[in-house]
């Protein structure tokens, strides 16, 4: 069988801050038999500008990304939120005769990592092993807008040695929200504190998530408070052997 050709969209946060998550994603996909490339001209999905209301400026980044991934078969990203942004492109370019169809093509072939593994590759057990008690943060864009709810749990439940604990109030946002985290810091603090409290109450010693933004927020707060909780991206968990 011809290997599945996958273009990796690592996101700017992973490119600059969380390079190990990028490497884990790459290795994980290769181990699953994919032929993975990394289009080097990729930058950012445009969400920081888009969510702040700078739609015209965001469109410049979006057009660039549409060009970058033009020839890819599949685009896979270890971020529910950035994947959601790609899927939103046709909506952003609605009515544009040139860019709407091109945006639609990109949206149709874009998948969040766990969604790709479960729904496209049809794999629910990636053969990962990790000892510990963990809880999973359901990130808002990935769950509500991209609609990926079950794939991460299916994969995590099959990780050998990992005991999954439910996270209280898992439906509440962690308080990241991009610029919200620095614009509305006081509110964001209350939200992330309740999230950290939930993680503690769950009895887990590992917090897993599929979005680097949320993990930077919750992890940064856990770190500041000196809580003994390890924060891991789901790609790193699934690439643990």
């Amino acid at each position: 069988m011809r290997p599945m050709k996958v273009s990796l969209f690592v996101t700017c946060l992973i490119d600059i801050f969380q390079t190990d998550v990028g490497m884990d994603t790459l290795e994980l996909l290769e181990n699953l038999g994919c032929e993975v490339d990394f289009p080097e001209k990729q930058t950012c999905c445009g969400q920081p500008a888009y969510n702040s209301g700078y739609v015209d400026k965001a469109k410049e980044s979006m057009k660039h990304m549409i060009n970058v991934f033009e020839h890819s078969d599949y685009v896979v990203t270890p971020s529910g939120s950035c994947g959601t942004m790609f899927r939103e492109y046709p909506h952003v370019f609605k009515g544009d005769p040139v860019w709407e169809p091109r945006a639609q093509m990109l949206a149709d072939k874009t998948f969040e990592l766990t969604q790709f593994i479960v729904d496209v590759l049809g794999v629910e057990d990636v053969g990962a092993k990790l000892n510990g008690k963990a809880t999973y943060h359901t990130s808002c864009h990935m769950t509500r807008l991209l609609g990926v709810k079950e794939a991460p749990m299916k994969l995590l439940n099959n990780v050998e040695g990992l005991e999954m604990k439910p996270l209280p109030h898992n439906y509440n946002c962690c308080g990241f929200g991009g610029a919200f985290s620095v614009k509305m810091t006081e509110i964001s603090e209350q939200m992330v504190d309740e999230k950290v409290q939930g993680v503690e109450d769950s009895g887990a010693d590992i917090l897993i998530g599929a979005d680097c933004g949320c993990l930077m927020n919750i992890g940064g707060r856990i770190d500041r408070k000196g809580k003994p909780i390890k924060v891991m991206h789901i790609a790193s968990v699934l690439n643990s052997r």
Partner: peptide, 11 residues
């Protein structure tokens, strides 16, 4: 945001 647009629309 201007800087963002410049920095992300051009590799």
């Amino acid at each position: 945001m201007k800087a963002f647009s410049m920095g992300t629309a051009s590799p």
